[in-house]
């Protein structure tokens, strides 16, 4: 008998590769009786969507160049005095 840990792991696995019919059935059976796992399925999808969103990808692109960082450090060194 698979527990919540197994089931939620299996769901992540199913997002990466094909899982067996038995496993798919196990997920379905378990989710009909387990509210916490149903919540996990939803949260997992939301996280996927957030991390796949353009907005998320753009956020990582906003960076200072090394040169700008050095300038900033120098500026701060001076304002400390």
């Amino acid at each position: 008998m698979k527990d919540c840990q197994d089931i939620t792991e299996l769901v992540e696995r199913s997002k990466i590769e094909r899982i067996s019919v038995g496993d798919r059935l196990a997920i379905r059976m378990h989710s009909t009786i387990c509210k916490k796992c149903r919540q996990y399925f939803r949260d997992s999808d939301v996280l996927d969507k957030m991390m796949q969103s353009k907005r998320f990808k753009h956020l990582g692109e906003y960076q200072f160049t090394e040169e700008e960082k050095e300038k900033l450090k120098a500026l701060l060194m001076n304002s400390e005095k």
Binding site: Q63, K69, K73, L76, E80
Partner: peptide
């Protein structure tokens, strides 16, 4: 200050 810039600026 250097650490501060490195860790927090981005």
């Amino acid at each position: 200050t250097e650490k501060l810039v490195e860790e927090q600026s981005d």
